[in-house]
Computed example of a mutant assay.
Amino acid sequence: MFERTATIASRVGLHARPAAIFAEAAGEYPHEITIARQGEPADEAMDAASILSLMSLGASHGDVVVLRADGDGADTALDHLVQILETDHDAE
């Protein structure tokens, strides 16, 4: 199991446009990727490819989230997804 932490960079948090960008990218990988707020149990993590799960996560600007995935290439997938979360998509 691979795990990465990321700090939400978008000024409005992980809502609307940033969540859609992230969910689309997560869905392109063949891995089951989960996301949870830092400090929450791993068994409460949500599907990172689901925009509804992402929006219900309620992650705000500056919050730290934990991404987890398993399998060949999962570490590379998580690195890419961290880059997306740590980009302010509201500034583009």
Rank of each mutant, 00 (worst) to 15 (best):
residue 49 A to S: 15
residue 53 S to F: 01
residue 51 I to V: 15
residue 78 L to P: 08
residue 45 A to Y: 01
residue 60 S to F: 01
residue 49 A to F: 08
residue 69 A to F: 07
residue 60 S to G: 12
residue 52 L to V: 15
residue 58 G to E: 08
residue 64 V to Q: 14
residue 58 G to S: 08
residue 66 V to A: 06
residue 61 H to G: 03
residue 66 V to C: 06
residue 65 V to D: 10
residue 48 A to C: 03
residue 59 A to M: 09
residue 60 S to V: 02
residue 64 V to K: 10
residue 54 L to W: 07
residue 78 L to A: 07
residue 43 D to L: 04
residue 57 L to D: 08
residue 62 G to Y: 00
residue 49 A to D: 09
residue 54 L to F: 07
residue 55 M to L: 14
residue 50 S to H: 03
residue 75 D to Q: 13
residue 75 D to A: 14
residue 73 G to F: 10
residue 58 G to H: 07
residue 67 L to R: 11
residue 55 M to G: 03
residue 74 A to R: 04
residue 52 L to A: 13
residue 61 H to S: 14
residue 46 M to Y: 00
residue 77 A to Q: 02
residue 66 V to Q: 07
residue 70 D to P: 03
residue 51 I to M: 13
residue 67 L to H: 10
residue 59 A to E: 10
residue 51 I to D: 06
residue 62 G to I: 03
residue 63 D to N: 15
residue 45 A to P: 00
residue 47 D to C: 05
residue 61 H to C: 14
residue 40 E to A: 13
residue 66 V to P: 08
residue 77 A to P: 03
residue 44 E to T: 15
residue 47 D to T: 06
residue 61 H to E: 15
residue 43 D to I: 04
residue 61 H to L: 04
residue 42 A to P: 09
residue 51 I to L: 12
residue 73 G to N: 11
residue 75 D to I: 00
residue 50 S to V: 02
